[in-house]
């Protein structure tokens, strides 16, 4: 399946006057959801930037039906909403749109529960790597070394690997995506839409405010995360793991861009640019991440090209 972005609907899903900051990756991601899935979608949104971006009631700057819900309850509210549609014989995509806090921290228990129950929902974690809505505090998905307003000298721990944890739940579909690669994200959404059961997409969403970069560079930073190997793009469908075509080449370390190119664009890493030991730690993290990818690739294979057939069928 190849997506031609020109053939997708170009309606205003995100209206002028929404409350997003300039260069916001969330409005990019939200637009791609409807471009991919059409209008038969209901969003469930826990507390976060997207609670605000919608704008002021009784209007909304986002052309979606939305059930806003308390921070820790997105996956469970979505489970109930989907059950209600099923009870009424309606076939609707229930999509959770939650930040890294609402996914990996405060919302993690509900997420894990819904994943284990194989609820028929699409859960998208829009990962901007910190609690941005409250003003850039570290989350468990903030990467090593990043400045936040609760880690002034840089975070001391590495990023929690949520998609890997979701694969361990044995769900039907797990993917990573980046707002820097819209067609890849849209393809993944469309593939996920063809599967029944719990589907998880981890969307990297560089935040100009929190990461301290020029708001014009959101897409570039989102691409660099992939090109430096920091954020591998992949899919896991029904027990088969596959690197996404655009990210395959970064398996070879020589083809990756130096991570410093990614770090130097962002003010949150300013304090460690002249500390080679710190940069090295991030490079080591990339190495380890790719060891894991390698292991996943080798573990979750399907014999005789069956895996590829699964991807082609969707």
């Amino acid at each position: 399946m190849v997506v031609n972005i020109r053939k997708l609907p170009d309606r205003y899903y995100i209206m002028p006057g929404n409350a997003a900051c300039p260069g916001c990756p969330e409005t990019m991601g939200l637009r791609y959801i409807k471009m991919a899935l059409g209008d038969n979608v209901v969003l469930v949104i826990p507390a976060g930037c997207s609670s605000v971006i919608q704008g002021i009631a009784p209007r909304s700057g986002i052309n979606f039906p939305i059930l806003n819900i308390v921070f820790a309850a997105a996956a469970s509210a979505a489970s109930g909403l989907k059950a209600a549609f099923e009870a009424q014989g309606k076939d609707v995509h229930v999509v959770v749109w939650a930040g890294d806090g609402g996914t990996g921290d405060i919302g993690f228990q509900a997420l894990s529960g819904a994943a284990e129950r194989d609820e028929d929902i699409i859960y998208i974690c829009v990962d901007n790597e910190a609690y941005m809505n409250t003003g850039i505090q570290r989350s468990s998905l903030t990467p090593y070394g990043a400045w936040t307003t609760t880690t002034w000298t840089g975070k001391k721990e590495h990023k929690k690997n949520i998609p890997y944890i979701l694969i361990s739940h044995g769900v039907k579909y797990v993917a990573t995506a980046s707002v820097g690669y819209p067609t890849d994200f849209i393809e993944k959404l469309q593939r996920a839409a063809k599967i029944r059961g719990f589907r998880y997409i981890h969307l990297l969403a560089p935040c100009p405010i929190g990461w301290r970069f020029d708001p014009g560079l959101t897409a570039k930073v989102a691409q660099l995360a992939v090109q430096t190997g920091l954020f591998p793009l992949y899919e896991y469908i029904n027990g088969v793991f596959r690197l996404s075509p655009i990210a395959k080449k970064y398996k070879d370390p020589k083809k990756r861009k130096p991570v410093i190119e990614y770090l130097k664009l962002q003010g949150r890493y300013k304090h460690l640019l002249n500390k080679p030991d710190e940069v090295k730690k991030i490079e080591e993290y990339i190495e380890n991440l790719w060891h894991l990818i390698d292991a996943l690739e080798k573990t979750f294979t399907a014999e005789g090209g069956k895996g590829e057939a699964i991807y082609r069928s969707l």
Binding site: V42, A72, A84, G113
Partner: peptide
């Protein structure tokens, strides 16, 4: 009926709230 065997009470009420919001 559909019984959602949730992992906590926080999720229990959130799930039935979601269901009720969807018309059930």
């Amino acid at each position: 009926a559909r019984v959602i065997r949730v992992e906590s009470e926080h999720s229990a009420l959130a799930a039935v709230f979601g269901a009720a919001s969807g018309g059930a």
